[in-house]
Computed example of a mutant assay.
Amino acid sequence: MEIDFNKNSDGLVPAIIQDFTTRQVLMLGYMNEEAYNKTVETGKVTFFSRTKKRLWTKGEESGNFLNLISVKNDCDNDTLLIKVNPVGPTCHKGTDTCWDETNESSFGFLSELESVITSRRVNADSENSYVASLFEKGINKIAQKVGEEAVEIVIEAKDNDDNLFLNEGADLLFHYLILLQAKGFTLKDIVKVLEGRHK
């Protein structure tokens, strides 16, 4: 891999650190060629500390190492994306990331939808909320709705109306998210099962 350490007069390139599993950005550091080589050799992310003026392996004092998974170069060969498995919090202030964010997997809009479902369940205004009314009716009704939506998507799969097929898929997924919460689970629990099978 070609890395342009000479682009800047200090011989440093930015290194963006990303959690391999959650895809959250954890921190930004800087590497010179020696730090990069040590990172690859040891499997522990090592930076060049601009304040200490020396190599610095993340976790050398705290034990919160960044175990190397992969390194990618950007299109200009002057910025690195380093994917890691972190051991403990990454920030020196004790937070998961240097932006004080929780290092959790996010499924984009589906995570937002899970939050909405949780809010409707907790606030339980069943007169104005379809979700709240389902939770009020109990697990049997929720499971029944998932079954109905599953049958409908099977029927639409046999036809040629892509719009109806996708809408039934959305209905099925929506009701499945409700059922997961009714059973005390979330998408993260399903992902763990799938990851376990993948190994």
Rank of each mutant, 00 (worst) to 15 (best):
M1D: 07
I3H: 06
I3F: 04
D4E: 10
K7R: 12
S9G: 05
D10M: 03
L12S: 08
V13C: 01
P14G: 00
P14A: 01
I16Q: 04
I16Y: 05
I16P: 08
I17T: 04
F20R: 15
F20D: 14
T22H: 06
Q24G: 01
M27I: 01
L28K: 05
G29E: 03
G29R: 04
Y30A: 02
N32M: 03
E33A: 06
A35M: 06
A35K: 01
N37R: 11
N37T: 09
K38Q: 07
T39L: 08
V40S: 03
E41F: 00
E41W: 02
G43K: 05
K44P: 02
R50Q: 13
T51I: 05
K52C: 09
K52H: 12
K53A: 13
L55N: 08
L55V: 10
W56V: 14
T57W: 07
K58P: 01
G59R: 08
F65I: 09
N67H: 05
D74H: 10
D74N: 13
C75K: 15
D76R: 10
K83W: 10
V84T: 03
N85R: 11
N85Q: 15
P86H: 06
P86I: 04
P86F: 05
P86R: 05
G88Y: 07
T90A: 09
K93S: 15
K93E: 12
D96L: 03
D96A: 04
T97Q: 06
T97M: 05
C98N: 02
D100P: 00
D100K: 12
N103Q: 06
F107S: 07
S111A: 11
E114A: 13
S115Q: 12
S119F: 13
V122A: 05
A124C: 08
A124Q: 10
D125Q: 14
D125F: 14
N128E: 13
N128Y: 14
N128F: 14
V131P: 11
A132I: 05
L134V: 00
F135T: 07
G138V: 11
G138Y: 15
I139T: 13
N140P: 07
K141Q: 13
Q144G: 13
E149S: 12
I153M: 07
I155Q: 05
E156H: 03
K158W: 13
D161P: 08
D162L: 12
L164V: 15
F165L: 15
F165Q: 10
N167L: 10
E168I: 09
G169C: 04
A170L: 12
D171F: 00
D171C: 00
D171G: 00
L173V: 12
H175T: 15
L180G: 02
A182K: 09
G184K: 03
T186Q: 11
T186A: 07
L187G: 12
V191K: 01
L194D: 01
G196L: 11
G196I: 04
R197P: 05
